[in-house]
């Protein structure tokens, strides 16, 4: 038998840039129960928060056991859609979203390695750079989707439950509802950018280990370590190089007018780290011996 083959020896119809498209990978991931559950959880979180506020309604803003905390956004959570969304973002940004992003991005390569399917994809052959790029893009897309679901559902639940009220900032400022929504979306966007660091870190770990749990857990762990170091004030200016240094710079968006200085710093630091980790991941994966 002899079929017509390309000069580079490829089988008929094989084109490197047509392998493992974004859509295919998206479907492969979307059909996973874990992806569906994670997304559903984030979509339902606002409802859970609403129920919590409703059941414990008497306490909201009532007893002041944490008085003096100027950032006690919880006291304002039920003030309107914008406040509710802000509260939902705040409570999920420090850990939940980190885990979710680490999950989507840390599982990219390590997950395939764990299933044993990585070697078959590479033998298709899907070029390694393409494989990583597509998988990372899909991981980031799912992370963004999670963020969007959380924000959108929070706005919706907040609107239905508490109405279209102005945003009340923790320091006493108030902002018209329409403008507040943009601010809240800005907060979500900023959080998304800072989470790119976690995404990049998870990707590096993902190409470095065959155990998805190690990649996801490692990324979360390092994020927490960075947070802890950031809390050690004795480190002084050394903390400025920590990726989580400006994790709360979105507070600037609650000021009137908005303060962007710290957010600019945060975005710069986040993008630098994310770029560094991503480049590292690509370099590593290109040269790696795949033994899974």
């Amino acid at each position: 038998m002899s079929t017509v083959v390309a000069p580079d020896g490829a089988a008929p119809g094989y084109r490197a840039h047509a392998t493992l498209t974004f859509g295919t990978e998206f479907r492969r991931q979307l059909t996973r129960r874990r992806t569906q559950v994670t997304l559903a959880l984030l979509a339902l979180l606002p409802v859970v928060l609403y129920l919590a506020f409703t059941i414990g309604g008497d306490q909201v803003g009532g007893d002041d056991d944490d008085s003096g905390n100027a950032f006690a956004l919880a006291d304002f959570g039920t003030f309107g859609a914008a406040n509710f969304t802000l509260f939902a973002l705040l409570v999920s940004s420090s850990f939940l979203l980190v885990v979710v992003v680490a999950l989507f991005c840390g599982d990219t390569v390590a997950g395939e390695a764990g299933w044993g399917s990585l070697r078959y994809l590479l033998a298709v052959p899907v070029p390694r750079g393409r494989l990583l790029a597509v998988k990372f893009a899909v991981g980031v897309a799912f992370s963004a989707l999670a963020m969007l679901l959380l924000t959108g559902m929070s706005l919706l639940v907040g609107f239905l439950a508490y109405g279209w009220e102005p945003l009340r900032a923790p320091l006493g400022g108030e902002m018209a509802a329409d403008e507040a929504v943009w601010r809240v979306l800005g907060v979500a966007g900023y959080l998304g950018v800072t989470l790119l660091v976690v995404a990049g870190l998870a990707l590096v770990l993902s190409v470095s280990t065959d155990a998805p749990l190690a990649a996801v857990g490692g990324a979360v762990l390092l994020h927490i370590v960075s947070n802890i170091l950031n809390a050690v004030t004795a480190l002084g200016d050394l903390r400025d190089v920590l990726p989580t240094r400006y994790a709360q710079a979105w507070l600037g968006l609650l000021s009137q007018p908005a303060q962007y200085d710290e957010m600019v710093r945060g975005i710069v630091v986040s993008l630098l780290y994310a770029a560094l980790f991503t480049v590292l991941a690509f370099v590593r994966f290109q040269r790696k011996d795949v033994t899974s």
Binding site: D8, A10, G116, Y120, P125
Partner: peptide
């Protein structure tokens, strides 16, 4: 790694690699 000629090769090495879901 990634040579196009690999597209003319089918392989089962070290067990199946299937998506369990």
């Amino acid at each position: 790694p990634g040579a196009p000629v690999l597209s003319r090769l089918g392989a089962l090495v070290e067990g199946p690699g299937l998506l369990p879901h």
